[in-house]
Design a binder for these strands. Sequence first.
DNA 1: CATTTTTGTCATCAAATTGTCATATTGGCG
DNA 2: CGCCAATATGACAATTTGATGACAAAAATG
Lengths: 231, 231
Amino acid sequence: MSAMILVVEDEPAIRELVVLNLQQAGHRPVVAGSAEQALALMREALPDMILLDWMLPGMSGVELARRLKADKRTRDVPIIMLTARSDEQDKITGLETGADDYITKPFSPREMNARIKAVLRRRAPQMAGDAAEVAGLRLDPATHRVTGNDRPIELGPTEFRLLHFLMAHPERVYSRAQLLDQVWGNHVFVEDRTVDVHIRRLRCALEATGHDGLVQTVRGSGYRLSAHANS
Amino acid sequence: MSAMILVVEDEPAIRELVVLNLQQAGHRPVVAGSAEQALALMREALPDMILLDWMLPGMSGVELARRLKADKRTRDVPIIMLTARSDEQDKITGLETGADDYITKPFSPREMNARIKAVLRRRAPQMAGDAAEVAGLRLDPATHRVTGNDRPIELGPTEFRLLHFLMAHPERVYSRAQLLDQVWGNHVFVEDRTVDVHIRRLRCALEATGHDGLVQTVRGSGYRLSAHANS
DNA sequence: CATTTTTGTCATCAAATTGTCATATTGGCG
DNA sequence: CGCCAATATGACAATTTGATGACAAAAATG
């Protein structure tokens, strides 16, 4: 759920708004004020997605999209166009240039996130915030709700994020360091053993519906969420 | 799938980006801002792979690669070159210096990970994180699970690593010293005979599904994992 | 501002793992 | 066949590792 997203938008106010929303949605926004600046940034590294304003000073968004789609190296980066016009003709033109989706201003954060999610899901399923279900245990990031066999389960914020991450990557073992990076954030200074405690709290909460057990310990390696028995 | 990867790159922004992606891919990045710093770091410990920027202040990346390939101690560390130029001539030069692969900027995280994995698969299969299967015996590093004919097998950490290494290099004999280097780590002081004990424990565990015969003793040389019967 | 939740860390306990040794087996060879 | 070296095996004590309960600081809540 953490994608690097390049925002190309000349209006500082809108840019900030978009960046804020992206951050809140857990993404890593990178900004460019012009098409030229965007090209310069992309010379170094490619983002996972581009939010591109239709109207830009200098090279227009349409032109930039056309260029990017013409270059074999940048062809595969998904593009979502932002535009003030809702003209049907523009929409067609926009999609013809190779944009993956199209948002007309004014747009709500909700709409923006939904469309980003949709495109990400198409390109990289693991980054979209879909509800996950494993063996009767269900977690919905949208409603921030967890149920075990349809019975509600209460979780603290950290336990929720932890379970969310584990359920998004079931059957896979993660070391404490990896979990700290993914769930806590790769900049915090926290003791490795702290993960143990939160795992225990998580298990404790899941015990009510008998879904502890899904959270398995892999001695010497870390933890895993799995539907298969551990014996 | 946890390799220690040395990133040699002078541009802090790109360095951070690369480090972030490596961490997310489960690797352990170590950074150096210059060729000199890289050499100093490698005096202490050798990484499993080097991501090396072509252009560096002071000693260039090409020169560093040349040096590393000239030193017997560092010769075998795989190198992936990062460069802004996509010039074919440069590519040839780069590969001539001994680089194992070559990535031209701008590169997507996806591409970088794919190339790293490819090189790891070639040079150190047990680190590529691929599941291995030999004669119905299956080991998956990602889930940290071992099955024999689809029946689960329990292994301690050391036995797991031992089997993992053997399965990544089947049909090959390894001396006790080599196994100690590869499975235990080339810095630990452990008795040679200890390998025997762990081989026995491994065979013991595999016996449950009749796969113990795969671990063969080569008298006077060491051990081997082979699907073929032991004459 | 008082109260409740959440969080990170520690000390301690139980269990699993590990390296080594002593002893038993095995295989090769004269 | 008998000897020797190499390997297998069983036992064991030291060490690691994970689980758990308690606790105080920090953050959220009203």
